[in-house]
Design a protein around this nucleic acid. Sequence first.
DNA 1: AATGAATGAGCATTCATTCAT
DNA 2: AATGAATGAATGCTCATTCAT
Lengths: 198, 198, 198, 198
Amino acid sequence: MFETYNKVQQAVLETTLNLIIDKELQATSMSLIAKDSGVSTGNIYHYFNSKEDIINELYKAIVRFNGEYVTKDMTETDSIQTQFRKAWRNLIELGNMYPKGFRFIEQYSFSPYIYEQSKLEAYKDGWCGPLEKLYRKAVDEGVFVRLEPQMMVQMHYGSIVYLLKGYQQNLLELTEDIAEQAVLACWNAVSLEKGWNE
Amino acid sequence: MFETYNKVQQAVLETTLNLIIDKELQATSMSLIAKDSGVSTGNIYHYFNSKEDIINELYKAIVRFNGEYVTKDMTETDSIQTQFRKAWRNLIELGNMYPKGFRFIEQYSFSPYIYEQSKLEAYKDGWCGPLEKLYRKAVDEGVFVRLEPQMMVQMHYGSIVYLLKGYQQNLLELTEDIAEQAVLACWNAVSLEKGWNE
Amino acid sequence: MFETYNKVQQAVLETTLNLIIDKELQATSMSLIAKDSGVSTGNIYHYFNSKEDIINELYKAIVRFNGEYVTKDMTETDSIQTQFRKAWRNLIELGNMYPKGFRFIEQYSFSPYIYEQSKLEAYKDGWCGPLEKLYRKAVDEGVFVRLEPQMMVQMHYGSIVYLLKGYQQNLLELTEDIAEQAVLACWNAVSLEKGWNE
Amino acid sequence: MFETYNKVQQAVLETTLNLIIDKELQATSMSLIAKDSGVSTGNIYHYFNSKEDIINELYKAIVRFNGEYVTKDMTETDSIQTQFRKAWRNLIELGNMYPKGFRFIEQYSFSPYIYEQSKLEAYKDGWCGPLEKLYRKAVDEGVFVRLEPQMMVQMHYGSIVYLLKGYQQNLLELTEDIAEQAVLACWNAVSLEKGWNE
DNA sequence: AATGAATGAGCATTCATTCAT
DNA sequence: AATGAATGAATGCTCATTCAT
């Protein structure tokens, strides 16, 4: 997740992610990060300008990672339906494999703690762009109903996020089959014809 | 929103909600709550055990309010479709009319700051119960696909939440018509037949 | 020296003065002030906005005190010479009776730590104004040579300050007689006729 | 100013002087000295024992430099008056030509940060010795009043220092003529006959 | 000699909470 | 019930100094 950073930075970012997920931002003190990461406070400030800086770096790194994960096998030659399935299944897989990063983005993407600049970079590198393009194509080709692509992406993202939240809170099961049904439900919500046609 | 509380408690809860939405939890200090609410810190502790206690009381009060709002005109005699429409349209209306309470629940429903006990009470008093019952009925009567009612509710709630988030962040428009389309999309996601049949 | 302040403020200001004179500003930490004054750090911030604020309050209080001390018995009906003598003898007395306040002003009157605002108030309340007026009169009446009053006051102040510094560092004696000789030397430096004429 | 030191030491001392005058001691961190001087912190500690050590070395070097400057053209064959004039005019010139070194000495000569040892060396190497000798001779020959030479030197030094402070703070003008008048005032303060007799 | 990463005690300041009135 | 002064542990951050290279 943090391969582009050096050892010290990796230790700090990983530790911070774990702490924030376990304890919330306000309970994640610099001295705790220092203790858990094995990096002294002074040295943390050698590599990061501030606590805010750590959080924002974390945010950008995870957004980049998630974006690559979700779009990893989407190829333009695939049908709209295939790309649609792959993307949202990837998101579910991501939520299961990297739940901390997933929850971190969920919790902080609307936080004032994250600089607008970070959010901008996030958008540029993330998966919103590719999915919007896909949805727009689907609308243009008469596969989806005539709604704003961005709105549909937003709603489907919300569906998956809350599905995963329910699962992570042990309110729901999440088998392979259920995941598939969930993605299909998203498809049916906006496609003109019901069901997978393959 | 806080009619069941006395004057002092009301002042504290209202002030706290405004501060948390404007400034984040960490910037919402007790002394600021005291200053803005006109209640001295000492007296706040006469009515609440701790800061956590205020937040949790706030959480429970808003959940109760929101639950009543969403289910306000659902009557058992209405058709499944009508109840479905009313409920989700109510939620959208709530998000627009009481955005602070709505955002507060969004931000804190997964926070370790909220006691499990509060979340439980929330569930009991909220709108999840009635909606789940409705969805279960829809499944039983063959109106909806055979998926866990709770899972579908969760996904639809996520859809609407993210629709509202997009609107509140000025990414999306949210006209009467779009709201209707959004609820219809939710319906189509899980109903066996497409479209409103009325 | 700090009669216009309440008990807590007095304790803080007195402690701070003592510490700064003994140890320098940078070694005068808030926790040390708290320990020595018997006021908790939190409570110090109840009465002062910041460390800077304490220093500036200290500065203004001492300047006010010193100004009153130096000009305490100058009356316009006295001769120029009498007023001259009284003022500078008062300054010497002040330096001996209240050496800490005296040294504090010496060390910090040119420090960026002191706000311009504090320096302005200092000037308004201090003794520079009255002495300048006296010197101007002396020039106008042909008692002093034609030099800028402000410059002469500045030089005489420097003379006395360094006399006192020498004494405080045990380089010089400072008897009643020597003090008198020092003031006379200042007089002779700028008067047209040598010696006291009374 | 620092010819007796090697390149690295010179860079450190010069940088430190500039920083201290611009920013105060407390804002002059070792890392800033390192950055501005182009010498790494590690290497600074190769040439100096501590930050205190740098300040003290700076102090001693400047005192030596100032002492040489003030006494640079005092020759025993000159008359007392001539030597007197040259010395104090040199001090004024020094204050104008090397204001940083001048201000540094002013600010730190009474600071606990400067070791007693440094002050002693300062005294030995500075200009106090030669001037005291001159004043003693003046007393012995009946040119000056019978006061302690050290005391008179101290007072005259104070006069000039405050004249320069006033000038550096833009409170006073300081023309060639005014400088001359100032030195003459010092002379008149202690000489038995008024005015330059040449 | 030289680098700059690493250390950790110390700093000014904040803040939930208590307590005397 | 109500006040707000008082507490002191904890916070984010700095900085003189050390140390591995």
